[in-house]
Structures are given as C-alpha cells and as structure tokens.
Design a binder for these strands. Structure first.
Lengths: 341, 341
DNA sequence: GTTAGCACTCGTTTTGTGTGAGTGCTAACA
DNA sequence: TGTTAGCACTCACACAAAACGAGTGCTAAC
C-alpha cells in the first residue's frame, strides 16, 4: 500500500514533472530531492507506484510520468491541507480595480487579469441571470422601430439589447412605459418578472406585442445566450507548453475555445462547490485529454454564483493556480457586494 | 523585360502555389497548365522571372515560389481587371441578416461571418465615432453613484458605458437631464457635442462635474478605446495553413492578434481607399512577414468609414477574398443606411 | 530494508545512402 | 532566333543502420 515515503516520492516526481515536462527518472529524484535514498531504492518504490496506478511509463527505457490518478491525489492533498493562501491576492487587487457595471466588461477584464497572472488560458463565466433581482428597467429609443432595453439588477449589473417596438412610441411614451415596468418589476427576480409580464400583456392588450417582446427578452437575458456568458483570455498561452507543440493538438484546443459550447457545459457543472479540479480525462472532453481545468466560484448575491477557471496542461501548478483563483473569486465577490446598497 | 508569355507563366505559378503551397517546378507548369511549351522553355522563362525578382528559389534543386513582388503584380492585375464580382454576395446576405444596434454586436457578427466564409482570420473595425451625429442621449440610473450613459447616433448605433454621477440625482432627474442633453446635442457630431458640453458646464455650474464627466466620456466614445473597435474571428484558421505548422510562428501570430494594437494601426492606414492589399513585408509588421492583409471599407454615413479585412498566408486566394470583402462591405453599408431614417 | 553493480531496453541522435524533383547548360532543330 | 531534347549536377528528403545514453529490473551483497 501507499505509505508516507511513497507519497513523498510521488510528490517529488509530480513537482519535477510539472517543472520540466520530461519523464523523471529515479536518479533525478534521489539527487535533486534530498531523500537520503539511493536511486535503486527509489526505483523499487517507483515500480510499486506504477503498479498502484500512480505512474505511467511512456516507454520502458524512459522515466516515469504522473498519471491522472497521481495528480488527483496531489490536488486532494493540496486542497485538504488548506494550502490555498491568497498570496497573490494583492497583485490581483492591483490589476483588478474596477466597479461593477456592464457584466460583459467585468468578465472580460477578469479573464484578462487571470490569464496575465497565471500564464494559462483563463475562463470567466457570468452567472445565470435567473436569481438576480431587478432594480430598474428602461427603454431608450434608438430608431423608429427599435429601442434599447436596459435592465439593471440590484447588483449594479447592466444588461442591454436592442429590441423591436411599436413605431408609435416616442421617447416620452417609452419613458412612461419604463417607469411602469420598473414600478411593477423592481425587486422581483427575472424569473418572477416573466410571469408578471405575461399577466401584464393580458391587462394591457394594446401593448401586448411589445410586452411579450420584452418578456421574451427577459427570458433571453435570464438564460442569457450561453455563449455570451463566457469570456476567455490568453488562448495562445497553451502554446507555451511543450505538450502543445503539435499543431494539430493546438488547433483542436483553440477551436474548442472558439466554439465555447463545450466549455460552457463544463463550467456549468459543479457550480455549488468552491473549487473544482478536473484532470485530463476527468473533463470528459476528448480535446482536453491532456489538459486540466481548475475552477472556483464567486458569488453575487446569496444564491447567484459565477465560475472562474483556468485551463492548462495536466502538469499544472495546481497550488499556485488554486490560490490565484481563490483570490480572484474573493475579489469578484467583493466587487459585486460593494455595489449592492 | 516582362512580356505577355512571362506574365502568363507567372500567373500559372502563383495559381499553383496558392493551391498547393509547394514550390512549383517547370514540369508542373508545362503539364498542368496547357501552355504549349516544353518544360525547358518554361525553365528559361522562370530563370528570367527570377532575375526580375518575381520568383524565389528556396534552394537550388527545388521549384520556385512567388515573391511579394509577384503577388503585388498579380493583385494589381486582379484589381484593375475589375474581377471583383460579388459572387458570394448571396451567401453572405444569407449568413448576415441583422439590423444595426449595438456596434459591438454588429462587428462581432460580421467578423464571424467573414471568417466562416473565407476560412481565414477576419478583422472588422468599427469607425471612429467623431463624425457620427447624435440622435439621442440618455442616462439610466444604475446605482446611487453610477448611471449608464447611452448614446444613440443617427445610424441607429448604440454605444453605452457606466459613468459616475452625483448621488443626489434620482431617476426622474436623470431623465430630465437626458432630455436636456438630447435637445441640445441632437444633430451634432460627437466632436461638436464636446464643445457644447464645455459651454454647458459653464452655464450650469452646479452640474459641472457631471457634465464634464459626460464630456470626457463622449471623448472616449469618439476615439473609442481603439482596442474595443476591433473585432476578429477565426484566429485559429491560420493553423490550417502549412506555413504555420511551426508552433513558434503560430504563437507569434496569435499573440499579435490578442494584443490588437498593431492590427488597429494597420487597419487605420489607408482608410480612404476601397481596397488594400498588403503582402508580406509590405505590412511593416515583422510577425506578418509571411502573411497578407486584405482590407476593404464600408461606409456609415457620408464621411464615416469602417474597415473590414482578412489575414492569411501570402499565397492567399486574393480574387475570392477581394470579392467576398467587397460583398461584405456593401452589406454593412446597406445595414447602416437602412436604419437611417 | 538498502544499495551497488550490471545486463538489458528502447527512444533519440547521428551518420550514411539512395532517390527524385528540379535545375542549368549545351547542342540540335525548326 | 526561339524552342526543345538530353544530360550532368544539386540538394532536400526519406529511410536504414549504428552509436548513444538515460533509465530500468534484477541479483547479490551489505
């Protein structure tokens, strides 16, 4: 079975592999990491570790490489040891001083900072809108047939889209309508608002089309077209790692990012846990077989959570990434809290 | 000197190289392209063409590769022969049926379509705001200290940002203020608006801070932070081309895209010509030494122009790209025109 | 249980050798 | 004078063989 010494050796192997990306041999461990053991002993232990499924051997005359199972152990240990000290918190705070506002801007900026600090590819997902409470709704005339619908939530978050309106509505009419909408919908969650809107469209038959249009839109905002909720930054960072020296792999990875769908799905899973580490095959996405995805959440009100994450090679600096994500999550949570009067 | 036959041969070489990306030899030309000439003759001509600077030889026992000068000739011929028939116009219209609205959405969507159709990396740049005329300005309350400033131009384009406001302004006050602003600024260009705003901030001393804030913002919108004006799509398309099989090159290219700055500069040059083709070194950007940048413009009102473009390897399908860009430019121009009542 | 020693494995690097596409040149031909 | 056939020559590339060496597993001694 797995004793303390084996574990120490495994850890050394993982550390070294994370650093160098080349299979690590028994000699390396016994020399670079002072174990007080000869390479032969290490060799025996490594043989055991391989049998236990923690190490893989690319070929018989090469060193060993940590398996997904090994990283899993490593990360679990990291997580439970609570080694996630927000060391980089300060640096993140420096780079990320912003106030809430347009959700899109916030997540883009956050992704930017995250990829700059980690040097990996970063992902930031805004929360579903469903739980947010409406503070204010306003229609701004654009052309004779369109208006900009602005929805402000009580987190100080703004979302807007251009919609069709009846052409007989001038600026003042729209403003009156906006006031009425705000009056009736303020304080409700978006989900509740939709029901109310349906009721209203019965009440005010003549404005039915418009109200239903708005209703549809609120739905849209609620399940905001998934793709729009995801921001990423630093896609080309993955090319810094030798495991992506193969252009085919790189292309697959980048295409995956560009499409977004798969990532959105991944980030939507496990939204209720503070940290998630999915290693290689654990992601369930073939293109990410050699990647790890580390995520954390931030909160925005009591029930609404967003996700931030980092994608990199399986030999990721998990410790550092986890602490950075933790700091960033706190930062985002604070950002949204401060704006909630 | 360059006679008609040499030109035909050069054209054949370019066509072949664009297709295959492998250096083309004399035999290929005499067989695949029916010239009625033997390979030996072609060889002589090719030798001349090389001396004239139109062909390069990667090494002595390989075929020839067109030089930047050759592409230049090829493209010039293409342009003056007016071969840019909007063949793909229909297909673009299908993929790109949208109405004006948020500028950001429009350019993103356009970039998406452009990269889908061409299979190259696409660039779409929105025009500077300076020449656009204001139709409507509105402030929407967000939190007690912030508001969303929405500016609608007479092209039906919406731009908005969150700004600070005095905390003693409630929704109605903001609306009143909005009406006043609209009344005074409607019909003016953004540049003119700024002057008016300065005047106003003298007139209404108590609102000075806010008005100046808005003024600053209009400036911002005017020279909208350059980066925000550029959208691109399909960055990983470049990896489809064998000349970017080298990961280092690919990384340099992608980083360049992510940073945006250099591209913005490139697209800002020559905004007054319908088409631009910059081949390899002509771009002046070292990372694009092996790329060509083809651009076209679209117009938005009489004096305001935006740029769309495509980046690919120097052996680009210039003809096809030019005609697609032309179609797309028309499409965008029409889009903005239709919304201008 | 640990370690030195050693034979063995096998990917990587180096070296060597064809192979063939393509060239330039010359000489004959129309 | 322009075109073409023929031929020697070049050189990247593909492939095989050989040398290398990092790393292993096993055995025997401590």
């Amino acid at each position: 079975m797995m004793d303390a010494r084996k574990f120490r050796i495994l850890q050394a192997i993982i550390d070294d592999y994370i650093l160098t990306a080349i299979p690590v041999g028994s000699r390396t461990i016994s020399k670079k990491y002072e174990m007080g053991l000869s390479s032969a002993t290490i060799r025996n232990e490594m043989s055991d570790l391989e049998e236990l499924g923690y190490l893989d051997q690319p070929h018989i005359s090469a060193g060993r490489v940590p398996s997904a199972k090994a990283y899993r152990l490593y990360v679990d240990q990291l997580l439970q040891a609570g080694k996630i000290h927000s060391a980089d918190a300060a640096s993140i705070r420096d780079h990320f001083s912003q106030r809430a506002g347009k959700m899109e801007d916030v997540i883009n900026r956050a992704a930017q900072v995250l990829s700059n600090v980690t040097h990996y590819t970063s992902l930031v997902m805004s929360p579903r809108g469903g739980e947010m409470r409406i503070r204010n709704i306003q229609l701004v005339p654009v052309s004779s047939a369109t208006a900009l619908l602005v929805i402000v939530t009580d987190n100080g978050i703004v979302r807007d889209t251009v919609i069709h309106v009846d052409s007989d509505l001038d600026a003042d009419a729209l403003y009156t309508l906006s006031r009425m909408l705000t009056e009736r919908l303020a304080g409700r969650t978006l989900s509740e608002a939709m029901e109310t809107l349906q009721g209203m469209s019965r009440e005010f038959a003549q404005k039915r089309a418009l109200l239903e249009g708005i209703g549809d839109l609120v739905t849209d905002v609620e399940n905001q077209q998934e793709k729009g909720r995801l921001a990423f930054a630093g896609p080309s960072n993955i090319l810094n790692f030798p495991e992506y020296n193969d252009v085919e792999k790189a292309r697959a990875f980048l295409s995956l990012l560009e499409t977004k769908d798969a990532l959105v799905k991944l980030l939507e899973q496990h939204q209720n846990v503070a940290f998630t580490v999915r290693i290689g095959p654990e992601t369930g996405v073939p293109e990410l077989r050699e990647c790890s995805l580390v995520t954390a959440t931030y909160s925005l009100g009591d029930f609404t959570h967003g996700t931030i994450g980092v994608i990199g090679p399986t030999r990721m600096e998990y410790g550092r990434v986890l602490s950075i994500l933790s700091a960033m999550g706190e930062q985002l949570t604070r950002l949204f809290a401060q704006d909630k009067e």
